[in-house]
C-alpha cells in the first residue's frame, strides 16, 4: 500500500469520532465556513470610497516605511523615476514589459535588464532597482499584490535592493479578499505559479526584536501611483 493510502486511511479512521467545535464548550455546535465577504466586519475598518482608501494606504505606507507617492497623471511616471534614479545614483535597472513600465522606464536612460524572455540571475543581482507593475494595492494592509505574470517573474521584485512599483489609482482595492477577486477575474483557475502580497520593504527583527530594513529583499520600496 502506498504511503498516500496509509496516511489517508489513518486520517479516515481517526475522523470516525467527531470533535467538538471550538468556542462551544463541549456541546457539539456547528462549524461554518464564513464567506470572505464577512471578514470585513471583523478586520480593521476600510472606507468605501477611493479617496479614503488612498488615505489609508498612504497612512499604512508611512507606518511600513513604504515610500508612497500619488501622481497627478501617468505622464509623471517618467520624470519621477528619472529623478529617483539620479538621486540614488543608479547604474542599471531591471524591469519587464508592460503598459506602464514601457512608458516610463526607457526615460531613465540607463542600461536596462528585461526579464520577459528570461535573465541571468547574477546580472539581475547587479541592478540597483527592480521596476515592476502590480495587480492591486490593498488599502487595509498597505500591501501590493503581484504575481509572476504581472510583475516580471518571481525575483524581479525581491532581488534588487530597491523595488519600484508603477500603479494606477483604479487598481486600489479595500482588502485582501477583494485582491483575491482581482486575481480570479484576471486568471480564472489558471493561476500564475506565484502570487504575493508585498507589505513594505524587507525587514527583520531577529536581533533583539529591533526593526532592520532590507534583511534579504529590498531595503527600499517606492510606489508611484497615478
Amino acid at each position: 500500500m502506498s504511503a498516500k493510502n496509509e496516511i489517508l486511511g489513518r486520517i479516515r479512521e481517526a475522523l470516525r469520532e467527531p470533535a467538538p467545535v471550538p468556542g462551544h464548550h463541549g456541546d457539539h455546535g456547528k462549524a461554518q465556513l464564513h464567506a470572505s465577504a464577512e471578514f470585513s466586519q471583523w478586520l480593521p475598518a476600510v472606507g468605501e470610497d477611493l479617496a479614503s482608501q488612498l488615505d489609508l494606504f498612504a497612512k499604512n505606507s508611512a507606518d511600513l516605511k513604504t515610500e508612497f507617492h500619488l501622481l497627478a497623471s501617468r505622464e509623471e511616471f517618467a520624470p519621477r523615476l528619472r529623478e529617483l534614479a539620479q538621486q540614488n545614483n543608479w547604474k542599471r535597472v531591471a524591469t519587464h514589459s508592460g503598459a506602464l513600465t514601457d512608458m516610463a522606464v526607457p526615460a531613465i536612460g540607463l542600461p536596462t535588464l528585461k526579464t520577459d524572455a528570461g535573465y541571468e540571475v547574477n546580472a539581475m543581482e547587479q541592478c540597483d532597482a527592480g521596476i515592476t507593475e502590480c495587480d492591486a494595492l490593498v488599502a487595509q494592509t498597505g500591501s501590493i499584490l503581484i504575481t509572476s505574470r504581472s510583475a516580471g517573474g518571481r525575483a524581479l521584485s525581491v532581488l534588487p535592493p530597491h523595488h519600484v512599483v508603477l500603479v494606477t489609482r483604479a487598481q486600489m482595492v479595500p482588502d485582501l479578499a477583494a485582491a483575491y477577486v482581482v486575481v480570479r477575474e484576471k486568471h480564472g483557475d489558471k493561476f500564475p505559479s506565484f502570487i504575493s502580497f508585498i507589505t513594505g520593504p524587507s525587514r527583520t527583527g531577529d536581533i533583539e526584536r529591533i526593526l532592520v530594513l532590507g534583511a534579504h529583499g529590498p531595503k527600499r520600496l517606492t510606489v508611484f501611483c497615478c
Binding site: T115, G118, S143, S196, S202, R203
Partner: peptide, 21 residues
C-alpha cells in the same frame, strides 16, 4: 504586524510563459 512583509502563494513550478521560478 497587520500582515507580515511577504505572503506568497506558490501553485506549481514555473508555468508556460513565465520567465523564472
Amino acid at each position: 504586524q497587520a500582515i507580515t512583509c511577504y505572503n506568497s502563494m506558490i501553485g506549481g513550478p514555473r508555468q508556460p510563459g513565465e520567465c523564472d521560478g
